[in-house]
Amino acid sequence: MLELNLILVFIIIGAIIAIQVKDLLSAVAALGASGLGLCIAFLTLKAPDLAITQIVVETLCLIILIKATIRKDLPFSTSGRWFFNTLVTFVFLAVFLYFGYKALKTLPPLGKPLMKISQFYMAEALKEVKATNVVSAITLNFRAYDTLGEATVLFTAVIGVIAIMRKKGRKKIEEADEND
């Protein structure tokens, strides 16, 4: 798994650059590089559906973030208790990493999944659904309610964006008309 580790190191370096660089547009570009690295990691882990979706999501995410950051600069201020806050943050992150490392030791090792439920899905995908792609058989047939919930969340978020980004409020005459 050497190539996967190298890709992960690339993603981490891209994330650190995206966080620490001062220009916001450069930060968004570094985040895009990190996301494309994640796409290659998905391909390495034998998940082509996820890689396709990740490319589309990454591009849309980049466009949305550039819309927010273009021609806006970032003032850098170190007022307040700068040293104390940084120290507390790093101590917390160190404790988080330590306990996360202890918790990861209890997981099954990499490359040996349990696959108790997936045995059923993989056996029934060809017989019942007649789909050669097992992932699409799961998302569209066995767990179709999950996809329905996903669509619900998606449209709710779209309604929220429309309600937030709307420039004009509703006029009072229209409200009076609706009340009648």
Binding site: D49, T53, P113, I117, S118, Y121, V135, I138, D146, T147
Partner: peptide, 11 residues
């Protein structure tokens, strides 16, 4: 490989 996490991560 296990197809179930792939389907959930897709969502």
């Amino acid at each position: 490989v296990d197809p179930l996490p792939q389907a959930l991560v897709l969502t």
